[in-house]
């Protein structure tokens, strides 16, 4: 006699009908945990997919807040979120809890860096890359290889996208394929090339699928090739990367030199993709900020607005968004030195 079906899983009935998942796979998803680093375009599509699929615990890490030009592709957010001044991680969590109240959602409003990324990925079964920059991706790669933690790379620019599941010490890691990120100004960004929503949805959906395979233990069924798509032309390639891992020359998984995790390659200032903005991150160990006190010190025409997550004000034709951990996003410039100067003058440090 078959055991009584678990009625709490009925919302996933159509997914469980797929034989490679079934009720057993669905139960494994319920007891699984995923950390999503970055909740912009890729991260919000992936979080939506994984929450609806019934992954039991999602930790969503994002440093950013929502802007009108995000809504074209970042599916979890709406105009009301912008009016409420919500950070992306918090807005995503609120939306996802309405979609699936049976799972745990933990929003983390923070910039993933060498000091905190291990804590963000602790207890995760898989890490999903939803970031928009090379630095954080190489940091994720270092952490996951060191911790033997599977992760799924995904990236998009314009109409092109890439997906690669990475099983440390088994499949090529990010640095096996691209030993170092490109120098600043040598690679297209959202600023220069834009991004189409369809490629975001395809890449994030495939990232989510590879995560689901990992969570149910279907490692033998991962697509171990680098998936590449150009949605405008319809050209799809599956690229065999195995030669990249041969010889143990990879500085990360071969030589185990985790320079990004050690902070040796991590800048404190970074220009944000597509934003005409610069992020400033305070030094390691900096004390948290008193946003109310800072707001009180600002010039009268700075028009400060504050909630529990951030302080926003305008100065010298630049919009500052300041977070309690000392991080700031300064809009109106791509000049990192200019941004550092503004930070030093109005925030200190």
């Amino acid at each position: 006699m078959n055991p009584e079906p678990d009625r709490t899983l009925q919302r996933y009935a159509r997914q469980m009908l797929y034989p490679r998942i079934g009720e057993q796979g669905q139960k494994r998803l319920r007891h699984s945990s995923v950390t999503i680093i970055g909740c912009g375009a890729l991260g919000s599509v992936s979080a939506n997919t994984l929450a609806r699929a019934g992954v039991g615990s999602l930790r969503i890490v994002d440093r950013d807040f929502i802007e009108l030009n995000n809504l074209q592709r970042q599916v979890l957010f709406d105009e009301q979120d912008i009016a409420n001044g919500l950070p992306k991680a918090e807005a995503a969590a609120r939306k996802l809890r309405r979609i699936n109240s049976a799972i745990e959602i933990e929003p983390v409003v923070a910039d993933a860096n060498p000091d905190n990324i291990a804590a963000f990925c602790r207890d995760a079964d898989v890490v999903l890359d939803g970031t928009d920059n090379f630095e954080t991706r190489y940091l994720i790669n270092d952490l996951c290889v060191q911790a033997d933690l599977p992760w799924v790379y995904g990236a998009v620019i314009a109409a092109e996208g890439l997906v690669l599941p990475i099983v440390p010490n088994e499949t090529p890691c990010l640095r096996c394929i691209w030993p170092d990120p490109p120098a600043a100004g040598t690679s297209p960004t959202c600023d220069t090339a834009g991004v189409l929503s369809p490629v975001v949805n395809i890449v994030a959906s495939l990232q989510s699928l590879e995560v689901i395979k990992m969570l149910i233990g279907a490692y033998g069924e991962l697509n171990r090739e680098l998936f590449s798509i150009d949605v405008w032309t319809g050209r799809v390639r599956n690229l065999d990367m195995q030669a990249s891992r041969e010889g143990g020359a990879c500085p990360c998984c071969g030589q185990r030199d985790f320079v990004f995790l050690a902070g040796e390659r991590t800048s404190a200032t970074v220009s944000l993709c597509g934003r005409n903005a610069v992020q400033i991150r305070p030094p390691r160990g900096a004390d948290p900020l008193n946003l109310a006190a800072i707001a009180g010190r600002l010039p009268f025409d700075a028009r400060p607005k504050r909630n529990e997550f951030m302080l926003r004000f305008e100065i010298e034709a630049h919009e500052f968004t300041l977070f309690p951990d000392g991080r700031a996003i300064i809009k109106g410039t791509d000049d990192e030195a200019r941004a550092r100067g503004l930070y030093a003058r109005y925030i200190g440090g």
């Binding site: 970055g38 912009g40 375009a41 890729l42 991260g43 890359d129 939803g130 970031t131 928009d132 920059n133 090379f134 991706r137 995904g154 990236a155 998009v156 620019i157 092109e160 996208g161 890439l162 394929i177 691209w178 990120p181 490109p182 690679s187 297209p188 960004t189 959202c190 090339a193 991004v195 590449s228 390639r237 690229l239 030669a243 041969e246 993709c273 597509g274």
Partner: peptide
């Protein structure tokens, strides 16, 4: 395989494809 000297053999009908890492997301 050989990123240093680019010595991998190429046959007349081969397709050589050059790509770079993508950063957006």
């Amino acid at each position: 395989r050989d990123r240093t000297r680019l010595s991998d053999a190429v046959a007349p009908d081969d397709d050589v494809y050059v790509m770079q890492a993508l950063s957006g997301g």
